[in-house]
Structure formats: structure tokens, C-alpha cells
């Protein structure tokens, strides 16, 4: 137990250091923006990792919840005069409700059937966002009111760097809490054997919905932050490519590794930034890099490094 606690605090401290130290030396707001994007993505990826990496339930439509969170902070303040700070939790509640309602029927499906059903959900959300022009501004999206705290408008990437960094740290701690609890053990158990988990008294259907709802809320918060950072949202936030990117971040960093979620997010946020140097070759390069990474690091970066380290030690 002592060792486990130590591990836990060490990894939290490590994440805190990874947020604070670059924050002290980053030279321009461009870099703060990229940093904030990394933290926001990492937050969504931690949530998805709980579902995909720990509980073993694939979702190819999780960006749907990012979209719900993003449009909650866009639509509620603009059309209903809801304060931005209230729109974020409203998005969380809405995402949780949607996840709860669709979760029970959808999560009975397995493997590719679950993959395509979640994919369908994500695509449907993106289509609604693109088609309900009167509410959402259509395919071109809509602008987002800036967050105001104590009358101060938060628009600097530097501020968002610290806000999203703090949220990431909180999200990480909450995920650790969950994993170290009976619910966490149950959701990890059903990954390996649903039948054994049920025989041990785990209500598998309930646990699946629980973790689906939790991961949806993570995605929703990330979506809200993304919209507030950018000051603008488009339906692409909920699109299939966004969902795929999230899954790739989970797998790349390491399924079942919270720290890996951050690494995976950092990699796939920073890489395309670097690839923009190649202009029209960007897509081609990204595709080839994804293939190479998945072939050579199929267990994910953090688990692979961990294994190498253990092998060297023994």
C-alpha cells in the first residue's frame, strides 16, 4: 500500500512538474497555446483510456462528447445568456445524460459491433451540429464568448495553459482515485473476463455505463476548454477524425497507462504542428508516421519503455 501511494504521488508530482517547468520557460504565446492543446487533449484521452484501455470497451465516437462540451459553452451563453462558467458544468451534465441513455443498449455490443455503433453516434452528433444552422452556425461553426473570472476576460493562451494544466492534474487525480477503488477494479476485471467478473458479483452492464459516463464527462470538459481557448467552434470538433485521433492517442501512449495518455496526447498534438512545415505533404507524412508508430510501438510508448527498463534491470 505504501508503495502504491508513493507511486501515485510520484506520478502526480511528475505531471505537475511537466506542467509547471515548461510553463516557466516557454517563449511565446504560440507555445503556450500548443501546451494548452496538449493538456486539453490529454484530459479527454485520460477519460477515453478509462473506457478503452482499462475497461477494454472501444469507442470510435468519443469526439461526439467533445462536441457536446464545446457547443455547450458556445450556445448556452450566446443564445440563453447562461454564464460561461455555468455552461461548462451544463455541458458535463448533458454529456453524462446522453452517455447514460445510449450507454446501456450500446455497451451490450462487443468488438467491431461496439466500434461501429459508437462511430455512428459520433457521426450523428457531428451531423446534427453541422445541420442545425440556426443553433450552431452550421459547418462554419460559431464564435464562443470568452470566459470571465472576476470581470477579467480570459483570452491569453498563457492563462489557458495554466487553467487546462490544473484541470489535467485534477483529472489525473480523479482517475487514480477511481482506479484504486472497487469500481476501478471491477472495470479492469471485465476487460479480462466479463463472466468471471459477473460471478464475483460485478454488475457488468452497470459498470460499463458508469465508466462510459465518466469518460464522456472528461471529453465534455476538454471540449468546453477547447472551445474557450479557440474562441470558435466547428462541427469538426465532434468529427470521426477527432474520434480516431483520440483513440490513437490512447493506444500510442499506452492502453491502461494514465501517464501514457499524456504522452500520447503530447505526441499527436505536437507532431502535426511540426509537420505543417511540409505543407501539402502533411497528410501523407502523418499517415505514414501513424503506421510506423503503430507497427513498432504497438503496445504504446509508456508500456514499451517500462518493459525495456524492466528487461535491462533483470
Amino acid at each position: 500500500m505504501a508503495r502504491f501511494l508513493a507511486n501515485r504521488w510520484i506520478s502526480l508530482a511528475l505531471v505537475a512538474a511537466l506542467i509547471v517547468l515548461p510553463g516557466l520557460i516557454l517563449p511565446s504565446s504560440y507555445y503556450f497555446r500548443v501546451g494548452a492543446l496538449v493538456f486539453i487533449s490529454a484530459l479527454a484521452v485520460i477519460g477515453l483510456n478509462l473506457l478503452l484501455g482499462f475497461a477494454g470497451q472501444v469507442s470510435l465516437g468519443h469526439a461526439g462528447f467533445v462536441g457536446i462540451g464545446a457547443y455547450a459553452v458556445a450556445i448556452l451563453p450566446a443564445r440563453f445568456d447562461v454564464p460561461v462558467l455555468l455552461a461548462v458544468p451544463a455541458g458535463m451534465v448533458l454529456s453524462a445524460l446522453v452517455a447514460f441513455v445510449i450507454g446501456r443498449p450500446i455497451l451490450r455490443l462487443k468488438g467491431h459491433f461496439l466500434a461501429v455503433a459508437t462511430l455512428g453516434f459520433g457521426v450523428l452528433v457531428a451531423m446534427v451540429l453541422a445541420n442545425e444552422v440556426g443553433w450552431t452556425g452550421g459547418p462554419d461553426g460559431m464564435s464562443v464568448k470568452r470566459l470571465e473570472i472576476f470581470g477579467e476576460r480570459i483570452r491569453q493562451p498563457r492563462d489557458w495553459y495554466w487553467i487546462s494544466g490544473t484541470l489535467l492534474l485534477i483529472g489525473m487525480a480523479i482517475a487514480q482515485n477511481l482506479l484504486a477503488s472497487p469500481t476501478g477494479r471491477a472495470l479492469r476485471a471485465l476487460h479480462d473476463s466479463e463472466i468471471a467478473a459477473r460471478v464475483a458479483g460485478v454488475d457488468v452492464a452497470r459498470i460499463k455505463v458508469t465508466v462510459f459516463v465518466i469518460s464522456a464527462v472528461y471529453a465534455s470538459v476538454a471540449g468546453s476548454c477547447l472551445a474557450l481557448l479557440n474562441g470558435h467552434v466547428t462541427p469538426d470538433a465532434a468529427g470521426f477524425l477527432q474520434s480516431v485521433e483520440m483513440v490513437t492517442m490512447v493506444v500510442l501512449g499506452g492502453m491502461g497507462s494514465l501517464f501514457g495518455s499524456i504522452i500520447g496526447a503530447a505526441f499527436l498534438v505536437i507532431l502535426p504542428q511540426a509537420l505543417t512545415l511540409f505543407h501539402e505533404y502533411e497528410h501523407l507524412m502523418l499517415g505514414i508516421l501513424i503506421i510506423l508508430i503503430m507497427i513498432f510501438l504497438r503496445d504504446g510508448i509508456v508500456p514499451t519503455l517500462h518493459r525495456l527498463l524492466m528487461e535491462r534491470r533483470s
Partner: peptide
């Protein structure tokens, strides 16, 4: 942890409390 899971029916199941640690 395998054996701990065996005690699931005797444990508190509130995901809220679990999230809050």
C-alpha cells in the same frame, strides 16, 4: 487484486465516492 475483486459484493459501490477518493 484478483482476490480483492472477489470481495466486490461486500464493498461500497458508489462510483461518486470512488471518484472523490
Amino acid at each position: 487484486e484478483n482476490v480483492m475483486l472477489g470481495r466486490h459484493i461486500h464493498e461500497d459501490k458508489s462510483a461518486w465516492r470512488h471518484l472523490l477518493g
